[in-house]
Simulated assay, not measured.
Amino acid sequence: MMTAPDLAGVAWRKSSYSDGGANNCVEIAGGIPGAVPVRDSKNPEGPVLLFTAAAWSAFIGGVTADRLR
Protein backbone atom coordinates (compact mmCIF):
# COMPACT_ATOMS: atom_id res chain seq x y z
CA MET A 1 0.00 0.00 0.00
CA MET A 2 1.24 3.48 -0.90
CA THR A 3 1.59 6.02 1.90
CA ALA A 4 0.04 9.39 1.12
CA PRO A 5 2.84 11.88 0.45
CA ASP A 6 2.93 15.41 1.82
CA LEU A 7 1.62 17.53 -1.07
CA ALA A 8 2.14 20.91 0.58
CA GLY A 9 4.04 23.14 -1.79
CA VAL A 10 4.00 20.83 -4.82
CA ALA A 11 3.62 22.45 -8.23
CA TRP A 12 0.37 21.44 -9.94
CA ARG A 13 0.00 21.64 -13.71
CA LYS A 14 -3.16 21.55 -15.75
CA SER A 15 -3.75 18.97 -18.46
CA SER A 16 -2.70 20.11 -21.92
CA TYR A 17 -6.02 18.69 -23.15
CA SER A 18 -8.07 21.11 -21.06
CA ASP A 19 -10.10 23.36 -23.31
CA GLY A 20 -9.43 26.43 -21.21
CA GLY A 21 -12.92 26.28 -19.74
CA ALA A 22 -13.58 25.99 -16.05
CA ASN A 23 -15.61 22.78 -16.22
CA ASN A 24 -13.33 19.95 -17.24
CA CYS A 25 -9.76 20.29 -16.03
CA VAL A 26 -7.51 17.95 -14.13
CA GLU A 27 -4.13 18.77 -12.66
CA ILE A 28 -1.19 16.56 -11.81
CA ALA A 29 1.78 17.15 -9.57
CA GLY A 30 5.27 15.94 -10.30
CA GLY A 31 8.24 15.37 -8.08
CA ILE A 32 6.70 12.59 -5.97
CA PRO A 33 8.91 9.51 -6.45
CA GLY A 34 6.87 6.55 -7.71
CA ALA A 35 3.53 8.37 -7.53
CA VAL A 36 1.35 10.75 -9.54
CA PRO A 37 -1.16 12.88 -7.60
CA VAL A 38 -4.21 13.98 -9.63
CA ARG A 39 -6.88 16.49 -8.62
CA ASP A 40 -9.84 18.40 -10.04
CA SER A 41 -8.69 21.95 -10.79
CA LYS A 42 -12.15 23.29 -9.90
CA ASN A 43 -11.71 21.97 -6.36
CA PRO A 44 -8.02 22.35 -5.45
CA GLU A 45 -8.73 21.85 -1.75
CA GLY A 46 -10.71 18.68 -2.46
CA PRO A 47 -9.57 15.08 -2.61
CA VAL A 48 -6.48 13.96 -4.51
CA LEU A 49 -6.26 10.65 -6.35
CA LEU A 50 -2.85 9.04 -5.98
CA PHE A 51 -1.71 6.66 -8.71
CA THR A 52 1.45 4.62 -8.85
CA ALA A 53 3.78 5.80 -11.58
CA ALA A 54 3.26 2.49 -13.41
CA ALA A 55 -0.55 2.78 -13.30
CA TRP A 56 -0.42 6.39 -14.54
CA SER A 57 1.94 5.44 -17.35
CA ALA A 58 -0.40 2.61 -18.43
CA PHE A 59 -3.37 5.00 -18.37
CA ILE A 60 -1.57 7.63 -20.46
CA GLY A 61 -0.44 4.91 -22.87
CA GLY A 62 -4.04 3.78 -23.29
CA VAL A 63 -5.23 7.34 -23.89
CA THR A 64 -2.56 8.13 -26.46
CA ALA A 65 -3.20 4.83 -28.27
CA ASP A 66 -6.96 5.60 -28.25
CA ARG A 67 -7.76 2.34 -26.45
CA LEU A 68 -10.02 3.81 -23.77
CA ARG A 69 -13.27 4.35 -25.64
Rank of each mutant, 00 (worst) to 15 (best):
P44Y: 02
M2W: 05
V10A: 05
G62C: 02
V36F: 08
N43Y: 07
F51C: 09
G34T: 09
G62Y: 04
N24Y: 00
G31M: 14
V48K: 06
I32H: 01
A11L: 13
W56L: 11
A35W: 01
D6H: 08
N24V: 00
A22N: 06
P5A: 08
S15N: 03
S16T: 15
F51V: 11
N24R: 02
W12K: 08
N23P: 00
L7Y: 14
A65P: 03
E27M: 00
C25P: 07
S18A: 15
K42Q: 07
M2H: 13
D6F: 05
R67I: 04
A65Q: 11
R39M: 14
A8Y: 10
T64D: 11
W12Q: 09
I60P: 03
G46R: 09
G9F: 14
D19T: 13
P44Q: 04
A65I: 05
N43M: 08
A53D: 13
N43H: 13
V36E: 09
P33Y: 02
A11E: 15
A65E: 11
G20V: 05
E27T: 00
S15E: 01
E45W: 05
L50M: 12
S15C: 02
M2T: 14
P37L: 01
I60Q: 13
F51Q: 11
A54Q: 12
E45V: 07
F59L: 15
G9M: 12
D6C: 06
S15G: 03
A35E: 07
D19K: 01
A4C: 05
G9W: 13
V36W: 08
P5S: 10
D6Q: 07
D40F: 07
N43E: 10
G34L: 10
P47H: 08
V26F: 01
W56P: 11
R67F: 08
S57I: 04
V63Y: 08
T52G: 15
F51S: 10
